[in-house]
């Protein structure tokens, strides 16, 4: 069996040794790669924003009316929560850059808890909709009074916020993984690539919500 290509040498905080690339180049390559991945996520949501834009134009009154069923206070609260979690995620990167692994743990844990709070609020929102019947499969949904244009709005609403919530969940998983690494004092000013990449992903989750919130909750 050939030697493992990725071996950790030196003490904790040392970058992994790769056979094909030096550690500094590896950092820049990984960051660039993550930005490319974020580009794909932007394009993923672009389709949803485009679909929303064209149907909003086509079904303007129905969309306006349907939007009143959303609770802007909960949406606003979620916005503030994500903005705050984004701030702590950025601070976590700083903590890694000054060799403070516990700082990484603390800040990413705050971001994680914010993500959890976001999902809990989303759960309350969805279950309220289900109770009121604005949910596929309910009696109101299937009845004749629920126009196709309404279904269109809510269909887009659930797909957009649902996909976003899935990304929040994935982001939380990534944060958790980095938290565990940081607890073992893995990072230092010489190596904090996973911290930065996890933070970048989390910021994207925040970015998407920055646009989702006004479009879905506030447009009238």
């Amino acid at each position: 069996m050939a030697e493992s290509v990725y071996s950790k040498v030196g003490g904790r905080g040392a970058p992994p040794v790769y056979h094909h690339i030096d550690p500094i180049n590896a950092y820049h390559a990984a960051k660039f790669g993550m930005w490319l991945f974020l580009a794909t996520e932007i394009l993923l949501f672009s389709v949803l924003f485009t679909a929303f834009a064209i149907y909003n134009w086509a079904y303007f009154e129905s969309f306006q009316h349907a939007a009143t069923k959303l609770d802007w206070k909960l949406g606003g609260l979620n916005t503030l929560i994500l903005l705050f979690s984004s701030c702590t995620a950025a601070i976590a990167v700083y903590k890694a850059q000054i060799n403070d692994n516990q700082g990484v743990v603390k800040n990413f844990t705050v971001s994680f808890i914010c993500g959890l709070a976001f999902l809990v609020i989303k759960y309350f929102e969805y279950s309220a909709k289900y109770r009121h019947g604005y949910f596929p499969g309910t009696e109101l949904w299937n009845s004749a009074e629920f126009s196709t244009q309404y279904k269109n709005y809510f269909g887009l609403y659930y797909v957009m916020t649902g996909l976003h919530a899935l990304h929040v969940l994935i982001g939380m998983g990534v944060l958790l993984w980095v938290i565990f690494l940081a607890r073992r004092e893995r990072f230092s000013e010489k190596y904090y690539t996973p911290v930065e990449l996890a933070a970048l992903y989390w910021h994207l989750v925040d970015l998407i919500w920055i646009f989702l919130f006004p479009l879905l909750y506030l447009i009238d």
């Binding site: 196709t148 279904k151 269909g155 887009l156 659930y158 797909v159």
Partner: peptide, 15 residues
């Protein structure tokens, strides 16, 4: 999603 949720993003009968 359209098949599963029954929404009408691309189906003309569903708007």
């Amino acid at each position: 999603a359209e098949k599963v949720l029954g929404v009408g993003i691309f189906d003309p009968e569903k708007g």
